[in-house]
């Protein structure tokens, strides 16, 4: 049974999230090194973190008439919302808080990236950034509904919006097994709100970095970190929603949570490299004509199962 942790879990959750995100960055760096023919070493895994000292020494830039307040608000919101989403994600049998609307909380935090990335694109008063910000809105119209139906499928199966209840309701049979469509839609949604891999369109190189284009120094670091924090958060959330949470034989619950989260994270990091960018002008049609009806049918399955209980 998932229980609310002691006061220090408030500090532990963000630290754990940051550690998971750092692992994902390192794994991505190793895969990139292998692909580029460089030695796959610990040094190669650590090199992306040199962005930290670089961000700290950078001198500030001043663009003509930027919307500084909205720009910075957008950039900061991405990592901060990722940290806030950990409020409801159980680790083993411990969670910072287990409110009765945990699933809605996670959903709400994830939706803030819509506003955040649009603001990050609008703020610098630069054409490429603006295009990047609008790209995320179009992408959001495609990924958001399948993701919401995936969350609702899991909630319907447990007849609860409390994340702890959903994890506990999967005794013996994970939702990933009998709700595979919802699980897949959730994973695609995680890549989409992290705007990584096939959903990196808002920060695409074809638009000179899009929302990242005019960012330098600590602001650039925050937005980049926000992407990986969201990836880690989405992977961690998949475990209680679809993979039975901390349940498992032999090992303690926290160890099972960790193993499952790392596996989902690894899957996402590999998948992100395997696909080209899926532009919204193609993905919107697929999402609405195929994914939305499929995920709606997926919700019908747990609804009927619940009725039959």
């Amino acid at each position: 049974m998932v229980e609310r942790g002691p006061w220090w879990t408030v500090a532990a959750a963000p630290l754990l999230l940051a550690a998971l995100a750092a692992l994902a960055v390192a794994a991505d760096a190793l895969l990139a090194a292998r692909g580029a023919g460089r030695p796959v070493t610990l040094t190669a895994a650590a090199r992306p973190f040199l962005a930290l000292p670089r961000a700290l020494v950078a001198g500030p830039r001043r663009l003509p008439a930027p919307d500084l307040l909205l720009w910075r608000a957008g950039v900061v919101t991405v990592p901060v919302a990722a940290v806030l989403s950990t409020l409801v994600i159980p680790f083993g049998n411990t969670v910072v808080a287990d409110p009765s609307v945990g699933v809605v909380w996670f959903n709400a935090m994830e939706v803030t990236t819509w506003a955040a990335l649009w603001l990050a694109g609008w703020g610098p008063n630069a054409a490429f950034s603006l295009i990047g910000g609008y790209r995320f809105l179009a992408q959001g119209l495609a990924y958001e509904l399948p993701l919401m139906f995936a969350l609702i499928a899991a909630a319907t199966g447990a007849e609860s919006l409390r994340v702890g209840d959903i994890a506990a309701a999967q005794q013996g049979l994970w939702y990933a097994v009998w709700m595979p469509v919802a699980f897949a839609a959730h994973l695609a949604g995680v890549l989409a709100f992290s705007f990584l891999g096939p959903f990196a369109h808002p920060a695409g190189r074809d638009a000179a970095g899009g929302v990242l284009g005019e960012l330098s120094g600590p602001d650039r670091l925050l937005l980049q970190a926000g992407r990986w924090l969201w990836l880690a958060s989405g992977a961690a959330m998949a475990v209680p929603l679809f993979l039975g949470g901390g349940a498992g034989p032999g090992l303690p619950a926290w160890a099972w949570s960790l193993v499952k989260t790392l596996l989902v994270l690894a899957l996402l990091v590999v998948a992100a490299r395997r696909l080209p960018v899926v532009r919204p002008d193609r993905y919107v049609e697929l999402a609405w004509v195929v994914l939305v009806p499929l995920t709606i049918l997926q919700v019908l399955v747990p609804a009927l199962v619940v009725l039959g209980r």
Partner: peptide
Amino acid sequence: AARALRVSADPLPVMPFGS
């Protein structure tokens, strides 16, 4: 930390990237 460590506090006047 960035404010303490940055090499210059003087904002560099720049233009948005236009190739």
